[in-house]
Amino acid sequence: MNLRDSRAVTVNHLEAENLQLWRGDRHVLKGVEFGLGKGECLQVTGTNGAGKTTLLRTLCGLMVPEEGRVLCEGRDVRADLPAFHSSLMYLGHEAPLKADLTARENLHYWIGVRRRVAAAGLDAALARVDASAWCERLVRTLSAGQKRRVALAGLALMFAPLWLLDEPTTNLDADGQQVVGSLIAEQLARGGAIVVATHQQLPGAVRAARVLELAS
């Protein structure tokens, strides 16, 4: 394989320009602005209902702001959404897992739709989140924390330059939080960018480059 036949996508600079969004009568995003460089982490805080999830969904293009733009490398991401999407990984608060598939199968189908996955890569990702022991069990038999770990394995396996994480530490024990912390640190160290929405402190030794507080 060479890099030429892959879509080499980079995220050196992500920028939000005056994002405005209404839901019904509610003005949810009131002119959100920020810039994010490579290897940087932006923490979005705010009370429940302040629009953290809405902001993440707007950044990744699921929701369309009434005003404002999201720019990646200076270009409006809506100009080429598929290219932007293949450079990002969005993890909502629910892990996109099927109860009737094993943890390993879930990863195989979920990430396999997006990129080629070798069995070795799959095993490595599962080992990274300490899931090797139970990765052949059906997801319906797993605890909430274990499901969260499978989602994190997907994050590690996808290897995307931009991560959009919604409350990544929910349901995780101390060990699990450490895993999140080290995944984030790794991603930043290799030049990836992260937007993480959480009202808790970031796990591990990670410090956000910037904190964006949303007022409700």
């Binding site: 394989m1 890099l3 036949d5 892959s6 879509r7 080499a8 996508v9 980079t10 995220v11 050196n12 490579k38 290897g39 293949s86 450079s87 195989h108 189908y109 396999g112 739709v113 997006r114 990129r115 080629r116 996808m158 290897f159 995307a160 330059p161 991603q187 290799r190 030049g191 990836g192 960018a193």
Partner: peptide, 18 residues
């Protein structure tokens, strides 16, 4: 200097098959 998304994207046919 920046993270390159070096993973090979799944071809459309593979994605549909999966």
């Amino acid at each position: 200097p920046s993270l390159v998304y070096a993973a090979r994207p799944a071809p459309a046919l593979d994605a549909a098959r999966l």
